[in-house]
Nucleic acid binder design. Sequence first.
DNA 1: CGTTTTAATAACCATTTGGTTATTTAATAA
DNA 2: TTATTAAATAACCAAATGGTTATTAAAACG
Lengths: 122, 122
Amino acid sequence: MSGRSSKIAKHASEMTDEKIAQVAARLRILGEPMRLKILRAICQEEKNVQEIVQEVGAGQANVSKHLALMLESGIVERRKEGLNCYYRLEDENVFEICQLAVKSVERTLSGRLRRLRVKARA
Amino acid sequence: MSGRSSKIAKHASEMTDEKIAQVAARLRILGEPMRLKILRAICQEEKNVQEIVQEVGAGQANVSKHLALMLESGIVERRKEGLNCYYRLEDENVFEICQLAVKSVERTLSGRLRRLRVKARA
DNA sequence: CGTTTTAATAACCATTTGGTTATTTAATAA
DNA sequence: TTATTAAATAACCAAATGGTTATTAAAACG
């Protein structure tokens, strides 16, 4: 058994159905364009709801609902100041996950291109 | 501007709405318990549909639909041999994404515990 | 006090999605 | 050929989800 495959085997075996459900829930939260836009807006500096609403181009209620979900799940943090509520990205893992997802998408796209070329050659 | 924040700023600015939609689509595919179970089943060695069906405890049509989706998106690869179709995990990034998601979930859970203790103290 | 502003929440709707059943396609075997 | 088996697909349904509108809660201000 090689190093990599044994590592994968170990991690995979540790993935109980319960853990899988939790991981899926976390990834499903990130699998939504509007939520990613919100995270993009607040990943550098905290912003209040109105600023976020303006930046992502969505309704206030909609943004608040997405923020409530991400706050509940611990992805973002909230700081109240007078009438305003400032949100910031709290979980840095989220940022890394998105970077890996970008790599994954790019990998798929390049793979598609390669296959098209092979097909065209045949 | 510190090293980390500038790095984040750079990556965030490269995240166009188009790219965000692609990343969200990729993460949404992974944000589903049954699909993660299927990936767990085939991440070490390729398996045919029947083996996967038995392992994850779902209907054949359901598993086939999930596999078709992940094949189309380049996450898994297929090899036909006679009547059987063998599937394997093709995108290693997916595995890393899941590992990070586990870390993210664990981080949240420990954070919740800490808050509960703080609340109980008050 | 009442007014205004910000954000959260409730109610509702249209769409999407995961699962099931039934059918079809394709390869193998008799 | 016909029968059998594996996998894909179509059709359908119930549940979940994202977005909108309207309302509520709370803090700041006149």
